[in-house]
């Protein structure tokens, strides 16, 4: 384990950015988690992958950054708590800038690999089926599919903002994938394990590691047009009737909205296609037009 960046922290010790490296030479992969301090499933997944790699002799290089935003994680905040800045809006960073820009710069520089993966949880109010978000085609899509995560979501504009980590990696010519699973604030061991297995599958596909394949199968390999996003017709209290990963058919009751006071049923949300439930609103108090459920088409 090495410390690639540190900075004195007033009233506490030091902030340190830790990297765990296995193997040497190519191909090279960098895997980052905990950029958002309250997204714990990614942190757990990368630590599980770390345990798998300890007993391997990788043919290539794997850099792991299990937890970037340690101070945010301490306080269950997504952003860097001192000045409430999102590290994921500070890339490629600046070695002479603010603390968040310095962390971003150090992370960006120390993830100089051919393939970079940023692992997240869903937002605290949303639960996501483990999924990899990839571009519409090319080698990145092939690599995304090799993870065999439950959902591969091909998105044309995925995180291309130059100040986001994925956008900065791509702008620098590195292949980049975005993995998401579970929800923020909570640890979901099942989803974290799936994500760890997906990362291990990818390392196996690249020939970096052996005997780490997991028998997983992708349920939905979709574009935006293949995903039904069910939004709330009104504000209220949303009660889900399905879980992420459930297979549904047209007409299946996905959930309903009731009045938060009195419980009067205001609307029902039903599936419009055959598919897998990939996103569910977890925090029940909802505003009109908020996303409640995503169903990804299955073959």
């Amino acid at each position: 384990m090495s410390v690639v960046f540190s900075i004195d922290a007033p009233y506490r010790g030091q902030y340190e950015l830790h990297r765990l490296t296995y193997g040497s030479g190519g191909p090279s992969v960098a895997i980052v988690a905990g950029l958002h301090g309250n997204e714990l499933n990614g942190i757990h997944a990368v630590n599980m992958l770390n345990k798998m790699l300890r007993v391997q002799r990788p043919k290539g290089t794997v850099h792991l950054f299990p937890l970037v935003n340690t101070f945010g994680a301490d306080q269950a905040t997504k952003r860097w708590p001192y000045d409430d800045q999102d590290i994921n809006h500070a890339f490629p960073g600046d070695p002479d800038g603010s603390v968040v820009q310095r962390i971003a710069h150090a992370l960006f520089e120390s993830t100089d690999a051919e393939l970079c993966i940023d692992v997240h949880s869903g937002a605290p109010h949303v639960r996501e089926l483990p999924q990899v978000r990839a571009p519409m085609g090319g080698e990145e899509l092939e690599l995304a599919r090799a993870m065999k995560l439950p959902v591969v979501w091909r998105r044309p504009g995925i995180r291309l903002e130059p100040t986001g980590l994925i956008g900065a990696w791509r702008a620098a010519g590195r292949k980049a994938l975005h993995v998401v699973g579970g929800r923020g604030i909570t640890l979901d061991n099942r989803h974290a394990t799936t994500m760890a297995n997906g990362l291990a599958n990818l390392l196996g596909h690249l020939g970096i590691s052996a005997n780490m394949d997991s028998p997983m199968e992708t349920a939905g390999d979709v574009t935006h047009a293949d995903v039904d996003a069910h939004r709330a017709s009104c504000g209220g209290f949303f009660v889900a009737e399905v879980r992420v990963g459930d297979m549904v058919k047209p007409g299946h009751l996905l959930g309903y909205i009731q009045s938060p006071i009195g419980g009067e049923r205001l609307d029902e949300i039903r599936a419009a296609r055959t598919g897998v439930v990939m996103t569910i609103r977890a925090y029940p108090m909802i505003h009109a037009q908020e996303l409640l459920v995503r169903v990804a088409a299955t073959p």
């Binding site: 900075i7 004195d8 922290a9 007033p10 009233y11 001192y82 000045d83 002479d96 800038g97 603010s98 603390v99 820009q101 310095r102």
Partner: peptide, 8 residues
């Protein structure tokens, strides 16, 4: 008053 290295 609380500042880090790099705080404006």
């Amino acid at each position: 008053p609380v500042v880090y290295s790099g705080t404006m």
